[in-house]
């Protein structure tokens, strides 16, 4: 069983950040549009004063909801994004090592990746190319 979920810290941090920032952007875009509308209505000249006051009083609960949604998004998605990044980048180490062995002419066994691995199509084409040119690599 694989134990290390962080194999490429730089990539995984960038991926996790972009994933969480993307989700936060959704909260900001949807929540921001509503906050803007709320502010405009609270200052609207077409609404009676009583309604505007009621709106302004209850607005804080709406801001709290946006804040909680943002916090929940960060807390809930960070581990998930980290796991996704691992699923994506995990086989890269093996692929690099395998490639190095091939270049040194060591003729390692064919690299097998899981069907769902992101690097699978790359490794399949690369495997065929290496097989095609293996004799030339060994000669050098």
């Amino acid at each position: 069983m694989r134990r290390h979920f962080i194999t490429h810290p730089k990539f995984q941090t960038a991926f996790t950040l972009s994933f969480v920032v993307g989700a936060l952007l959704m909260v900001l875009i949807i929540g921001g549009a509503n906050i803007l509308a709320l502010q405009m209505l609270a200052n609207s000249p077409t609404l009676p004063m009583a309604q505007k006051t009621a709106l302004a009083q209850q607005a804080s609960s709406f801001y709290q909801l946006i804040l909680w949604l943002g916090l929940l998004t960060v807390a809930g998605l960070t581990p998930f994004a980290l796991f996704l990044s691992y699923k994506f980048i995990g086989p890269l180490n093996r692929l690099e090592l395998w490639m190095e062995q091939n270049l040194l002419g060591q003729d390692p066994p064919f690299l097998t990746l899981r069907k769902k691995d992101e690097m699978m199509p790359v490794s399949a084409v690369l495997g065929r190319l290496l097989h095609k040119y293996s004799a030339r690599l060994r000669r050098q």
Binding site: M26, G31, N34, L38, A50, A54, L55, A59, L65, L69
Partner: peptide, 17 residues
């Protein structure tokens, strides 16, 4: 997120009449 935020917004507007 959209459903939650819009539901809250609509209920807030409703409470304010």
């Amino acid at each position: 997120i959209g459903l939650l935020v819009n539901w809250k917004m609509d209920s807030l507007l409703h409470q304010a009449g």
